[in-house]
Amino acid sequence: MNIGKQRPSILDKSLSRGKTEVSLTAYALLFSEMVQYSHNRVNSVNELHNKLSELGQRVGIRMVELLFVREKNYKRETKLLNILLFIKVTLWKSLFGKEAEKLDRATDDERIYYLIEKEPLVNRFISVPRDKSSINCAAFVAGIVEAVLNATGFPAKVTALWHKGTTYMIKFDESVIARDKQLDGR
């Protein structure tokens, strides 16, 4: 069909500088369609969260590539705290135009961190049905965070909870904590 046409490679284009903006309405309606699409294909709240997380993960993986080239000058993060700050500051600013509100550490489990956001962009126009009040569509954002952590070598599971607005609970793999302690020891 396209024989004879030379398609320019995407790598010949210069990298997006991240300055373009679209209207919030357009984004909200697109996201709403994604939630409805996902909702029609699942049987439980848990499955819906997984589906939204999966959609977010594809975004997260690409953001890692983009931000480490554009904002971090190809330099990777090796420390746990630094990658969390990267997410709270750099990633959040690129995606949502502001930092996430708060980063906390669980007092009883050193593997668990909390990233807190009062009103996630994706939840602004979503009203949760009363009989399914545990639905939190920020599972999409949790997916983004999880993919960023996995792609940068900090395997973790991230879930979105209703707590002080929305709290993303980040539970790191045991190996991440062990490695971080080892790095600290040097």
Binding site: S16, T20, Y27, L30, F31, R58, M63, L95, F96, G97
Partner: peptide
């Protein structure tokens, strides 16, 4: 407004 990149990547996903 929202970031154009967020929009593009979300649609792609």
């Amino acid at each position: 407004k929202v970031s154009g990149e967020l929009f593009t990547l979300t649609y792609g996903s």
